[in-house]
Amino acid sequence: MKTLSPELAAHLASGTTTLCWCWRIERRDGTVLGFTDHDNALTFDDTTYEAAAGFTASDINDGLGLSVDNLEVTGALSSATLTDDDLAAGRYDDARIAIYRVNWANPSQRVLMRSGSIGEVRRTGASFTAELRGLAHYLQQPSGRLLQRTCDADLGDARCGIDLNASAYRATGTILAVSSARRFRVSGLDAFETRFFSRGLFAFTSGASSGLKIEVKSHAKFATAVEIELWADAEGPPGIGDTFIVTAGCDKRFETCKARFANTINFRGFPAIPGNRFLTQIGRAG
């Protein structure tokens, strides 16, 4: 049940209302954006809500128990702060969202209707549809440690302990040739073995995608060239001469932790755990 302020309750009971919807989005990188379906911008709680008359919202589906409550927001990519490149780059994935019902004539009269996160985003031409998931969605996500052969730490985090700023695990280079928006030949990585940067992080430091970071799909070293392929396309087309920083990757195996990082003391997996074959084998008398 929603608790309304006496002022908002009186406004609703008056029979003549001046209401609008406001959406507050907080991305994982800390960027905060506000949108409203009113025809003028509104400001409250240090957030300005940009007028975006093209936004429409579906009905909110509520369910009993721990079922996930969903709704969808549909709009056009007409805002200077909401771009197709940002959506394609995943900058809105799992962004936190709060939805308010607001008296636009007096924004202090408002009520929080729903909070959650952005799920699937579908794009068609210049329009998009974003699925908004309720907080119960997080109860369906795995949490805690898993008993598995591979390590469950992230390379470079506190549990891993590897310093990815060390020169042994980090390199700078330049793009020499471009095959596609995610695949190119580079310089600066000749001292590193094939697959050293696979599953690592590739950060553009110049060019149209400067500041963008994408996971490395493959790192291959040939006789006369080194090739990098990313898991996703760069925002802007990579150009010859663009510079980058790339950090080492890890496939989470005990053998890699030992040979590449000499970090077995911090290995967070269980390499000796019995597999399915051991658990299902039939015992036989000697």
Rank of each mutant, 00 (worst) to 15 (best):
W23T: 02
R24K: 12
R24A: 00
R24E: 00
I25Y: 00
I25W: 00
R27S: 03
R27W: 03
R27F: 04
R28Y: 03
R28V: 12
T31G: 03
V32C: 09
V32M: 07
V32F: 11
L33G: 00
L33I: 07
L33S: 02
G34C: 02
G34Q: 01
G34R: 00
F35A: 04
F35N: 01
T36M: 06
D39C: 14
N40C: 10
N40H: 15
A41S: 15
A41M: 09
L42S: 11
L42F: 13
T43H: 12
F44G: 14
F44D: 06
D46A: 15
T48N: 10
T48G: 12
Y49N: 05
E50C: 02
E50N: 07
A51C: 08
A51G: 10
A51S: 15
A52R: 05
A52C: 13
A53P: 06
G54A: 09
F55T: 07
S58P: 05
S58K: 10
S58A: 10
D59C: 06
I60S: 02
N61I: 14
N61W: 02
L64E: 05
L64S: 13
G65K: 03
G65F: 04
L66D: 10
S67L: 11
S67M: 11
S67I: 14
L71K: 06
T74G: 12
T74P: 05
T74Y: 07
G75N: 08
A76K: 10
A76T: 15
A76H: 13
L77D: 01
L77I: 09
S78D: 09
S79G: 11
S79D: 06
S79K: 04
S79Q: 09
T81P: 01
T81D: 07
L82I: 10
T83Q: 08
T83D: 02
D84L: 15
D85T: 15
L87M: 11
L87S: 04
G90C: 06
Y92T: 08
D93T: 14
D94I: 12
D94V: 13
A95D: 01
R96P: 00
R96E: 03
R96S: 13
I97G: 03
I97T: 13
I99A: 03
Y100D: 00
Y100C: 02
R101S: 09
R101N: 05
V102K: 00
V102M: 01
A105D: 11
N106V: 14
P107E: 04
P107V: 13
S108N: 12
S108C: 04
Q109H: 10
Q109I: 11
R110T: 08
V111G: 01
V111D: 02
L112N: 03
S115G: 12
S117G: 09
S117L: 05
S117R: 08
S117F: 15
I118M: 07
V121N: 08
V121H: 05
R122E: 12
R122K: 14
R123C: 09
T124Q: 12
A126W: 06
A126N: 13
A126P: 04
S127N: 11
S127F: 03
T129R: 03
A130C: 05
A130R: 00
A130K: 00
L132P: 01
L132C: 07
R133Y: 07
G134C: 02
G134Y: 00
L135Y: 05
L135S: 15
A136H: 12
H137N: 10
H137D: 09
Y138A: 14
L139F: 15
Q140P: 04
